[in-house]
Design a protein around this nucleic acid. Structure first.
Ligand SMILES: [Mn+2]
Ligand SMILES: [Mn+2]
Ligand SMILES: [Zn+2]
Ligand SMILES: [Zn+2]
Lengths: 139, 139
DNA sequence: CTCATATATGCGAATCACTCGCATCTAAGC
DNA sequence: GCTTAGATGCGAGTGATTCGCATATATGAG
C-alpha cells in the first residue's frame, strides 16, 4: 500500500486553520476539482453543496490557503485568478486559446535549464510560471 | 551598414494608425524605455514631455498598439499591465521578488523544448510567457 | 488648399475583480 | 460549559481598466 498524501483538510489542521462549515465545503470542492476554477466557479460549486456561503468567504479562504502553501494561484490571460491544490510534483500549463481549456505538462529538462540559467545570472529561483498558449495542430 | 529596424512611428503608419500629437509622444516614450513600464509610469513620462494627455488615452493607445502587434503586454505578479516594444528576438523574464526589477534572458534550448512538447501534445504554439521570480543568490 | 469623415481624445461615469470594516458567530482548547 | 482568536456575512470601498459621448484632428479626396 502506498501512503496517500495528506488531504487538504488534514493539511489545514496541521496549519492550525479552523475547520468551519463553509471552509469544509470549499476544501471538498477544491479536492474534487481537477481543473483550474476561478473564484466564481468555486462559489458556484460550493453553493451547489451548501447554499448561503458568501463569495467574500471564498476569496478570503483561497487567500488563506495560498498563504499557507496549500493551493496555487494562477493568472492566465483572462484576468481572473484560478486555483488548484499544490500538486505533488510541479507542472506547467498549455492554454488552448480557442476553448480556454488548460492542459498540464512537465518538462524536467526545462526545469533544469531554468535553474542553470538562473545560476548563471546569480539568482535563486523562488517560483516561476510557464504558460504556453496553443491551438490544436491543423492537418 | 545594417539596416535599422523600422521605428514605432513607421510601423504605426504601415498599420494605418493616425499620428496624433498625444500618440506621437506615447510612441516616443515607448521607444525611449528600456524597461517594462505600466500605464501610470507611461503617463508620467508622457506628462513630462507634454502635459495634458489623459490617462485613458494611454490605455487606449497601448491597447491599439498591442492589437496591431507593435508592443507586448506583460502581467507580472504585481497586477498591473506592463509594456515593451515587440523585440527583434523573443526573450523571457526574471523578476527580482525583492526589488521588482526585471531582467531579460533567452534560452534557445527552452524555446526548442517547448515546441517539441507542444508537438507531442498536438498543439501549435501561439505565444507563451515564462516568468521566473528570483532573488539574488546568497553567499 | 479646403472639405469630409473616420479616428482619436478628454473627461467623467461605469465596470469588474477583489478587499475591507464591522457586527456577529463559532471552532477548539481549557 | 466558557473563552476567545479566528471566521463569516454583508455591504461599502478600491484600484485598475473601460466606456459613452461630445469635441477635436489627421488624412485622403477633390
Ligand atoms: Mn495545474
Ligand atoms: Mn522584456
Ligand atoms: Zn515549470
Ligand atoms: Zn520564451
Amino acid at each position: 500500500m502506498t501512503k496517500a498524501h495528506p488531504t487538504l483538510t488534514e493539511r489545514c489542521r496541521q496549519e492550525g486553520l479552523r475547520l468551519t462549515g463553509p471552509r469544509r465545503v470549499i476544501l471538498q470542492v477544491l479536492e474534487a476539482s481537477d481543473d483550474h476554477p476561478d473564484v466564481e466557479e468555486l462559489h458556484r460549486r460550493v453553493e451547489a453543496i451548501e447554499p448561503g456561503v458568501n463569495i467574500a468567504t471564498i476569496y478570503r479562504t483561497v487567500n488563506t490557503l495560498a498563504e499557507h502553501g496549500l493551493i496555487e494561484r494562477h493568472s492566465f490571460a483572462d484576468g481572473r485568478m484560478r486555483f488548484e491544490i499544490v500538486p505533488e510534483t510541479h507542472h506547467d500549463h498549455f492554454i488552448n486559446v480557442e476553448t480556454g481549456e488548460v492542459v498540464e505538462f512537465r518538462s524536467d529538462e526545462i526545469e533544469r535549464i531554468q535553474e542553470e540559467i538562473a545560476r548563471q545570472y546569480g539568482f535563486d529561483i523562488v517560483s516561476h510560471t510557464l504558460d504556453i498558449y496553443v491551438r490544436p495542430r491543423k492537418g
